[in-house]
Design a protein around this nucleic acid. Structure first.
Length: 425
RNA sequence: GUGAUUGUAGCUCAGCUGGUUAGAGCGCCAGGUUGUGGCCCUGGAGGUCGGGGGUUCGAGUCCCCUCAUUCACCCCA
């Protein structure tokens, strides 16, 4: 047992896996650029009030999951970001104070921190890929954002994901619905579990997405949030659905979908993967028109966005065998030296090959030739180049093709050409 | 925060109702091939059995505490 291990809920990512991240990040960068989104990077910490105001102090995230600290005795409380939307909006408002807001399209791939108990698909430090469309939140804008998210999944080859959408209406709609839901649940009050009873007082909407089967049964007959929405709101939601159908994006309207963050309103959505176990949401998002004012802007900036959990994405892709094509490639050549006295010569040759643009490795540990050859094989090197007394004396080096086992004797000057030629597809 | 689970070699794991020097596979190193890999054969190195305490003639095995892991609740990506 090592004396130190990674902090609970934090993971090391080694090269074999980093390859996967690079691949996914590449797809994200290309798809987002197709939609005209540009990357934004914001600080990993923010003043704590930003999250209290933005996410809402009644949420679990703010209530009990934040890594918060005081930088110095008289300083302001600071928190490691538990999500990106509040920070991106803050950055945007800081850069564009009070300006008439044109459309801005931003995306990010960022590390976040939440002090939860780790479990499958949940870590204390995790990464989200997300996008924020600021300045419009029209049905077309909502559809655009959902469409981009789905295109990323699609390009990665994911299948069997379910997109659930719902409309949370505006604030008044929700207040109205809240009362309807309360009066519906009233007679069942004693049948509800403890958590649901508490929500009955504080935030009855959260009872809708309870995992407790008994509660789900009760909730199944509850009035629908969608039915409390104004005609205009309902029409907008239908237009979003129309755009999705139009683009061939499958969805299901889920009346029980309520997102946990306070700033969401109107359209909300979530994508779940059957491969994930209990934490099955791979991504989610919605409209958050109210956030800008909550953060002190004097004009409301309509906005839509989503976030996708990178680790959950990777788990799902792994389960679906989508990394199979990602084959590792070794160095083009491994320089094998006969004995330690030739180290200088071997390093000179390696240096020369690298300057010629050839990926080259050599033994740095003074190991036997057999061990060096095994290493070359393990690394998936294309060739082995032998550096021995004979070669140095004659100036003619032995180059062995490790795939075909063919060997050639070549002058150093001829080697780069042969290697470059052989690595062409 | 709550519940359960697991913790033996670098890795994946065996170790029956407590009984002498703790095992396997893979990996690693060396040799079989004194200048050559992948397959095969032989040998070798490597373990405070998570940590602490207790019961016992005797504990990897039983009890308590503790730390860590994993999964679930909660919540969310």
């Amino acid at each position: 047992m090592a004396q130190f291990q990674a902090v609970k809920g934090a993971k090391d990512i080694f090269p074999e896996e980093v390859v996967r991240w690079h691949y996914i990040e590449g797809v994200i960068r290309s798809v987002t650029s197709l939609y005209g989104f540009s990357e934004v990077r914001t600080p990993v910490f923010e003043y704590t009030e930003l999250f209290q105001r933005g996410i809402g102090s009644s949420t679990d995230i703010v209530g009990k999951e934040m890594f918060t600290f005081l930088p110095d005795p008289n300083g302001r409380s600071i928190t490691l970001r538990p999500e990106m939307t509040a920070g991106v909006m803050r950055a945007f408002l800081q850069k564009n104070p009070g300006a008439g807001v044109p459309v801005h399209k931003l995306y990010y791939i960022a590390d976040l921190f939440r002090k939860e108990r780790p479990q499958a698909g949940r870590q204390r430090q995790f990464t989200q890929f997300g996008a924020e469309l600021l300045g419009v939140s029209s049905p077309a804008a909502v559809a655009e954002v959902i469409s981009m998210m789905m295109q990323v999944f699609d390009t990665l080859g994911l299948h069997g994901l379910r997109l659930r959408v719902n409309s949370l209406g505006d604030h008044e709609d929700r207040m109205r619905y809240r009362e309807q839901l309360r009066s519906y649940l009233e007679p069942y009050h004693d049948l509800l579990d403890e958590a649901s009873r508490e929500r009955f007082e504080k935030n009855p909407l959260r009872i809708l997405d309870s995992k407790n089967p008994a509660v789900q049964e009760i909730v199944a007959g509850a009035p629908k949030l969608l039915d409390c929405i104004t005609i205009e709101g309902r029409a907008e939601f239908d237009r979003v659905l129309g755009y999705l159908s139009d683009r061939g994006i499958a969805y299901e309207v889920d009346h029980l979908l309520v997102r946990g963050l306070d700033y969401y309103g109107h359209t909300a959505f979530e994508v779940v993967s059957a491969e994930l176990g209990a934490q099955d949401a791979i991504g989610g998002g919605g409209r958050y028109d109210a956030l800008s004012k909550e953060l002190g802007s004097n004009s409301e900036i309509p906005a839509v966005g989503f976030a996708v959990g990178m680790e959950r994405l990777i788990i799902t892709m792994e389960k679906q065998g989508l990394f199979a094509t990602l084959c590792p490639h070794g160095p083009q050549v491994f320089v094998v030296l006969q004995d330690a006295s030739l180290e200088d010569e071997a390093l000179r040759i390696a240096d020369r090959l690298r300057r010629a643009g050839i990926t080259t490795e050599t033994d740095l540990a003074g190991r036997s030739m057999k061990a060096q050859m095994r290493e070359a094989n393990r690394l998936l090197a294309g060739f082995a180049l032998f550096v021995g007394q004979d070669e140095v004396a004659s100036g003619s080096y032995t180059l062995r093709n490790l795939r075909t086992s063919e060997q050639l004797s070549l002058s150093i000057d001829a080697i780069p050409g042969v290697l470059l030629e052989s690595s062409k597809p």
